Simulated assay, not measured.
Amino acid sequence: MANPSISFTDRYSSTLQPLLLLSTDYLAIIIAEWCAVGGRDIVLELLGRKNDWFELNNF
């Protein structure tokens, strides 16, 4: 009788899939922030502004 074995993907899928999803989601957030800041810098450069600082007044 053959010895049944569980494949690597079947054995660790319950831990690898959430870790893969978490890391992919985190990477997508970092890339989205990078694109937003880069796009903002491009727009400010096209408008002719060298720097545009945000000022938040104290309440």
Rank of each mutant, 00 (worst) to 15 (best):
M1V: 09
M1L: 13
M1C: 11
M1K: 14
M1F: 10
A2G: 08
A2H: 03
A2Y: 04
N3K: 15
N3S: 14
N3H: 12
P4S: 08
P4R: 06
P4T: 09
S5T: 12
S5E: 12
S7C: 06
S7G: 08
S7M: 03
S7A: 10
S7H: 08
S7W: 05
F8C: 07
F8A: 07
T9R: 14
T9I: 14
T9F: 05
D10E: 14
D10N: 15
R11E: 04
R11N: 07
R11G: 02
R11T: 09
Y12D: 06
Y12L: 11
Y12A: 11
S13Y: 03
S13N: 12
S14W: 06
T15P: 01
L16K: 08
L16C: 07
L16S: 09
Q17C: 05
Q17K: 15
P18Y: 01
P18M: 05
L19I: 08
L19D: 05
L20Y: 02
L20F: 02
L20M: 08
L21Y: 04
L21M: 08
L21A: 12
L22E: 03
S23V: 11
T24K: 11
T24L: 11
T24Q: 09
T24M: 10
D25P: 00
D25G: 14
Y26Q: 13
Y26K: 15
Y26A: 15
L27G: 01
A28P: 00
I29S: 05
I30E: 05
I30W: 00
I31A: 11
I31E: 04
I31Q: 07
A32M: 04
A32Q: 04
E33S: 13
E33R: 12
E33D: 09
E33T: 13
W34H: 09
W34I: 07
W34V: 06
W34R: 09
W34D: 07
C35E: 05
C35M: 08
C35A: 14
V37Q: 04
V37M: 01
V37E: 03
V37C: 02
G39A: 05
G39I: 01
R40K: 06
R40G: 06
D41M: 04
D41E: 02
I42T: 09
V43W: 01
L44K: 09
L44M: 05
L44N: 09
L44T: 01
E45L: 13
E45T: 12
E45R: 15
E45D: 10
L46N: 10
L46S: 07
L46I: 07
L46R: 14
L47R: 13
L47D: 08
L47M: 11
G48P: 01
G48W: 01
G48R: 06
G48V: 01
G48F: 01
R49T: 06
R49M: 05
R49L: 07
R49A: 11
R49Y: 06
R49S: 09
K50M: 02
K50G: 08
K50Y: 00
N51H: 10
N51I: 07
N51D: 11
N51W: 02
N51Q: 13
N51V: 06
D52T: 07
D52Y: 10
D52M: 12
E55I: 13
E55N: 15
L56F: 11
L56I: 15
L56W: 07
L56N: 14
N57I: 12
N57G: 15
F59I: 13
